[in-house]
Design a protein around this nucleic acid. Sequence first.
RNA 1: CGGGAUGUAGCGCAGCCUGGUAGCGCACUUGCUUCGGGAGUAAGGGGUCGGAGGUUCAAAUCCUCUCAUCCCGACCA
Length: 569
Amino acid sequence: MYYSKLLIPTLKESPADAEVISHKLMVRAGMIRQLAAGIYSVLPLGLRVLKKVENIIRDEMNRIGGQEVFLPSIQPAELWQESKRWDFYGKELLRIKDRHDRDFCYGPTHEEVITDIVRKEVKSYRQLPQILYQIQTKFRDEVRPRFGIMRGREFIMKDAYSFHADEEDTKKTYEQMAQAYANVFTRCGLKFKQVQADSGTIGGSFSHEFAVLADSGEDEIGFCDECGYASNIELAESRPVSSTTPADGEDKLNEVHTPGKKSVEEVSEFLGIPDKQIVKTILLENENGLVAGLVRGDHEINTVKLKNFIGCEWLLPASEKTIEEKLGLPCGYIGPVELDIPVYADQALFTLQNFVTGANKADTHFTGVQVQRDLKVREFGDFRSILPGDPCPKCKNGIYQVKRGIEVGHIFILGTKYSEAMKALYLDSNGKENLMIMGCYGIGVGRTAAASVEQNHDEKGMVWPLNLAPFSVVIIPVNFKKEDLKNTCESIYNQLLEMGIEVLLDDRPDRLGVKLKDADLIGIPLQIIVGPKNLEEGNIEIKIRKTQESQLHPFPQAIKDIPNILKDL
RNA sequence: CGGGAUGUAGCGCAGCCUGGUAGCGCACUUGCUUCGGGAGUAAGGGGUCGGAGGUUCAAAUCCUCUCAUCCCGACCA
């Protein structure tokens, strides 16, 4: 392509509302423009990158037997009512009415639609398994969209769904998907981790996410370098604690006056005891009422783990209002002693004794509290979030590290959640009806591109890996008005095209500096700079974007080497 | 949804406190010069000051409402 024919509106300054580097650079490079909060237009250069990502995904999906389909973005409410998600999904589901006042939604995901197709068209075990995927725009009405294309409300997503006759087969496809995902992100040039994850509102039993490590990520990933165990912090297991508590030196339960001291920090300072000797009582609410979670003062409760343990539909921190209304207790002084709701205690309490808790009375705490003597704990378990430096749960010597990650892919085994709700059945070889077992597998296309920028940039701009770069090579004439330079550039351009290389010729009348700055900003891997002095001596300059290394090469011979240079990038 | 902030030319901003009819840098157009890392110069085009209402002789500026966008949190994945 000729640069002058493309709309690449680059900017010298970043827009004021961009926070993360990928957002700033993609706007500056003229790849995206915001239309409304969390809604972006993708301009030609940006689309070239997204198509690269999509095509890598297509290739890997097709390789494991995926079949591409195109599904409606507007979906009827009936389908969502059938799966019970019409009520469950909440405000994130953008609901719309048509002219007949019928309810529809803009699809945030497509389990319902795909299950509807398969239940109608697939009847026999002979037709299973089926792996179907789509690459389309979805819409989730996020409370707070941010970070440009990384967390928009409208976004492009690849979603694959698989249908199986049995769990073993589902598992097999799940593993193939995991491998395909690893291939995709490797080909995209990303440093990523496959981590254990919670399945959230999508549902299902088994799930991993693919996280690109980056400081701007919204997920926290706990991992062990010794054995490779990695998990979203929501799920990251603590090493089990043995339940033996030495019974020596028991103190008496003692009430102390702690005026105005509510937080662990305040109480610890006031009483002059370490925060590890304090037990926090967190009141949570679910569909069945209030429950209490106990964790050590230096730990944080993990509501995802507790929710999964209890097996409830939802679990949220109770508001101060609810606590005062339902229990009549003052916030900040709540404790587990004589507390008349189910109490779930983190296993770290096994080894604690003579600790401090709230006394369920304003300005008062208990000291000398003992688990066995003073508390009625319904269950002990792993209910806290791990911390960096905690011992790895899977190996002897490993230590947890915690880093931030961008969730670019997520795979789930759904089981029969949707096939049951929507009656997706097949006949087995005995002529008996069975529920199909399902899996679903998503990749955020735009997010993957943005994650790549987060990982590959410098102060001059983006540094695209070859596989995602909008063009592989940019030819930069020092002066395109000079006939001989122009001819040389066009000849290089045509030769590279012949070789099947995606090449951009910067034919703009601008000065060299402008063209070099833009080339650096948009991050094309290889720059060929053609100037009169070098050309007179039979040379052209080839510069590698990533390293900024520049070398003179004999012209025209060097053109033949370009594919090799690209290969080595 | 709670807290905070901002809306003035395509982009980045000043002006607002102390009302007097809109400005700077970049970008854009034209001429001349320049031409290997975001050129210099001269001339120019472009703004219902987010919107509505109010106060006033007079509102970008003061008041009220509203909309939009961003940040922090909660939420979501």
